[in-house]
Amino acid sequence: MLRGVVELMEAEWYAVVALVLFVLAFVAILLNALLRRRSEVDRQARLPLDDDTPQANRTE
């Protein structure tokens, strides 16, 4: 029955709901990124630069 109902539906509202969903998700992400603590963000951003210095070398 559900399939029958869906088959007869019109498709336009899908696009509108999709757009609204996206906008909501985007606003949440934007807030999340902007409200992070600066010290924390700075440490995370430096991860690639702190990753490759061996504390001990074995060259033999």
């Binding site: 985007f26 934007l30 963000v41 700075d42 951003a45 690639p48």
Partner: peptide, 15 residues
């Protein structure tokens, strides 16, 4: 040097 804006990278990713 670190990426210009880590915050922007987060927005970049999820978007």
């Amino acid at each position: 040097r670190p990426v210009f804006s880590y915050r922007l990278s987060i927005i970049h990713f999820w978007s």
